[in-house]
Computed example of a mutant assay.
Amino acid sequence: MKKLNSAIIGCGNIASMHEAAILSCHNANLYAVCDIDSSKTLEMKQKHRCQVFAQYQELLKSDTIDVVHICTPHYLHAPMAIEAMKAGKHVLTEKPMAISVSDALEMVRVSKQTGRMLGVSFQNRFNHTSRRVKEILNTGKTGRVLGARAFVTWHRGAEYYSRDKWRGKWETEGGGLLINQAIHTLDLLQWFMGDIDTIKASIDTRFLKNVIEVEDTAEATIKFKSGATAFFYATNGYPLDSVVMLEIVCEKAVIRMEGDVTIKYSNGDIEHISDDEKANGEKAYWGCGHKALVHDFYKKLPEGQHFEVDGNEALKAIKIVNAMYVSHKIKDYVEVG
């Protein structure tokens, strides 16, 4: 099988996850990297003997590149993805796919127009525990979903924002905790529970008031079209990055995800599910889903199959986050379109 030539645009922290996933993928070849910081591209060139670019526009001119991974600041995701697809490249972008619903819709339109695959890194869907929970819910074994709760308690201090000046600003990050950290849990909630009807949310900057413009704490009541309700809380003010807790109450079982999964059935049975592969190190709370997601993207490409976290699917999370910001402003429930 011919290997697909890959390029990574943006060589910051998250790029290492894409780098490792590409290198472990049997039909992908890390052909090029791009960053305005030459020290980062030089390091990658020395490790992998890949091509290096300082400007992404020059990278996109290469006919050798098949797939572009976008690992840049949030506000660059949409314009870079659109240019890449118009240049004939398939795109796998980090979340959020865009910082506005209108930009996300344009990405979806260009993907359809060009016939290029657009994927978004909601890697938590690819953790073994997440996929098993989804399978179990789909079987109907647990009965109708009645409600849920989710907690994201992580730490992002002043130094996190001072390292990268684009963070903490509405214009360049597109928001704070919700669009950056908690978006993964919001994505899982709607993936597990179905379409959302309305949301009422509030946001606040409780810990870094004089450091960032955006929120570091948020809560919401989320009403689903099925009739179920979820209660959500997230903060970046916790002393450490604790494991996300997500609990789903069904007619015949209670499913609790907190790293591993425990399912307590109403008949007394208990089922435990662990991830096949455990993440280690400072970013262990990210899980191991990046590799599985990237591998699936490259598997689907040559076969012309649908990639499950495409633009239309990832757009749902952007609409949820946008509805939460609007709800906070008007202090009322907002429909999620």
Rank of each mutant, 00 (worst) to 15 (best):
A220E: 03
N322C: 13
D332A: 15
N29A: 00
K47L: 02
A150W: 01
M193K: 06
S16D: 11
A28G: 01
D37W: 08
K165H: 12
V244G: 01
C25G: 00
A148H: 06
A78L: 03
S39W: 01
K291W: 13
E173P: 03
I255M: 00
G176W: 03
G115W: 12
G227S: 10
D296A: 08
I36P: 13
E94Y: 06
L42S: 13
H155G: 11
K316Q: 14
V321R: 01
M85L: 10
W154G: 07
L301P: 10
H90I: 14
D332F: 00
V326W: 06
I203H: 00
K40C: 08
E173M: 15
L189F: 04
T198F: 13
E58I: 04
N180T: 12
I22L: 03
E277V: 15
V249H: 02
Y285T: 03
Q305P: 10
M245E: 09
H128L: 12
E43S: 12
Y333C: 05
H155W: 07
T198I: 10
L30M: 01
S100R: 13
M107D: 10
I263K: 02
I136K: 11
V211G: 08
P239W: 11
R131L: 08
L60N: 13
G12W: 04
S111N: 09
I203R: 00
C25I: 02
V214C: 04
H26L: 01
A292I: 08
T205H: 12
G289I: 01
I222H: 03
I9E: 01
H328R: 10
A28S: 09
P239A: 05
L246K: 00
D187V: 02
V68M: 13
G311D: 11
A78C: 09
D37A: 02
A284C: 07
A230G: 07
S226A: 04
I70V: 14
A84V: 09
W166N: 10
D103P: 05
N180A: 15
D66S: 08
D216L: 04
T129I: 11
F307C: 05
S130V: 07
G268I: 01
G194M: 14
Q57K: 13
D276S: 10
F122S: 01
L137N: 02
Y160L: 04
V68R: 12
N280V: 15
V309D: 02
V120F: 05
G268E: 03
I248R: 01
V261N: 00
V101Y: 09
T229G: 05
G143R: 08
P302H: 07
I212S: 02
R125I: 08
S6T: 11
L208C: 05
V294R: 05
E58P: 06
L137C: 06
G12V: 06
L240M: 12
V334Y: 06
T198W: 14
A323F: 06
N236W: 11
D103Q: 15
E251W: 07
Y75C: 11
